[in-house]
Simulated assay, not measured.
Amino acid sequence: MTDIIIQNLLSPVVLFFALGILAAMVKSDLKFPTALSETLSIYLLIAIGIKGGIELSHYSLSTVIKPILGTLFLGTFIPIIVLFILRFMKMDFKNAIGLAATYGSVSIVTYGAAISFLSEFGTKYEGFMNVLVVLLESPAIFVSLLLLKLNEENQGHSLSQNIGFTAGKPMVSGLINTKVIKESLFGKSVLLLLGSLVIGWIAGEGALPAVKPLFIDLYPSVLMIFLLNMGVIAGQRLPEVKKHGWKILLFAIFMPVLSGILGIFVGNYIGLSLGGTTLMGVLAGSASYIAAPAALRTSVPEANPSIYLGLSLGITFPFNLIFGIPLYYSIAQWLQ
């Protein structure tokens, strides 16, 4: 496993990310224009989606139903685990909900880096894995906000104060407002991923000549530029994270490993290949810094962005990029 970590550390993807962190730490004037950063993000979302759609055209529904159910299970169960852990750590409920949504959702860039990692090792994976990225974006957000609303409905019950809901209490209408639904289902990341995936699925193999030069051949190079920018942003977030104490820092490392291992076991149980099982671990172990924060800003304004965004981007993202992906790969190898 040490060799895998070293090889990952020396990959251009990780080195460009490290260069970005260094630039932030030495207060360099390196800065990406907002328009360029947005363009790179849109490119990655389309590239992953359309490639997944083309691959999905090769599979029947009976082949993908188990992976879909496994993904929905992870998106529902992980935020509940996160909420239990953080409430045990005595974190206030609103910030705990923010982290539950963030760590239950997925980082598209971590997933992209994992694909590059598998390519370096020549490890194949199921093409429909890109579909699961889209599926894992929203469930954790809905579950987390549902627990928040149920907790608000049951403020007087001791059980609700501990875990966020009361058994046997009927659900009320309006638990999640339309603005949250819009952010979760029609926000930039989900819309581009799902839309390009459907386009790739409809076009099938016939789309390859048109999309391969831009969205497949150039993908690794564009990812390096994007991660340079992410390194700068992550380096700027690190001072904010330190303010919240060492326990929350440990959470940002412990939680992705726990979720990643759970994802690996789910992937192995449903019969995925080594590459697919690794990617399932990466999906479960990553934390969102796009879709979840966008929904949280709308529905839980009391949650502190420097906590959920600082941890996901400043700690968990670099941890997964450097150590997490090789770790999930090694555990998946051991299981198979």
Rank of each mutant, 00 (worst) to 15 (best):
I50F: 05
I42F: 02
L22A: 10
E55M: 07
L40K: 09
L69R: 05
T71G: 13
S57K: 03
T39M: 09
P67F: 12
L56R: 02
P79S: 00
G49Q: 05
I46P: 04
K31N: 15
G75V: 02
G70P: 09
T71C: 14
A47V: 07
F73H: 06
I42C: 01
Y59F: 13
E55S: 11
Y43H: 12
G75E: 04
S57T: 05
F73D: 04
G49D: 07
L72Y: 13
P79M: 00
A35P: 05
T76S: 14
L56F: 06
L36P: 09
S57I: 03
S62V: 12
S37R: 12
T76L: 13
K27S: 11
G53P: 00
I50T: 06
I78S: 01
V26G: 00
S28A: 12
T63Y: 15
I50Y: 03
A35Q: 13
L36Y: 06
S60Y: 05
T76M: 14
S62L: 11
L74M: 14
A47E: 05
S37N: 13
G49V: 09
Y43A: 10
L30N: 06
S60F: 04
T39P: 00
I42D: 04
I65Y: 09
P33E: 14
A24E: 02
A35C: 06
P67E: 10
A35V: 13
I81V: 15
L22I: 12
E38L: 06
I46W: 06
L72M: 15
G75N: 03
I78K: 00
L40V: 13
S60P: 11
G52L: 02
T71E: 07
I50Q: 04
L36A: 12
Y43F: 15
K66W: 15
L40A: 11
K27V: 07
L69K: 06
A23F: 07
P67A: 11
G70D: 04
Y43S: 09
L30C: 08
A23H: 02
S57A: 12
G53I: 06
V64W: 10
E55C: 05
S60M: 08
I65T: 12
A24N: 01
I46V: 15
A24C: 02
M25I: 10
V82N: 03
P33I: 09
F73A: 09
G53N: 02
P67L: 11
A24F: 08
L44A: 14
V82R: 01
M25C: 03
S62N: 13
L22P: 00
L74N: 09
P79G: 00
L44F: 14
L61T: 09
I46M: 11
Y59W: 08
L44V: 15
S62F: 11
L72D: 13
I81G: 09
K66G: 11
I80R: 02
T39D: 00
K51S: 14
K27T: 08
L30E: 05
P79N: 00
E55I: 01
L74Q: 13
S57R: 02
I50A: 02
V82W: 01
L30Y: 13
F32Y: 14
L61Y: 10
I50P: 05
A35W: 08
K66Q: 14
L22S: 10
E55A: 13
L30Q: 09
P33G: 15
A23C: 07
P79W: 01
S62R: 12
S37F: 15
E55P: 06
P33Q: 13
L56H: 04
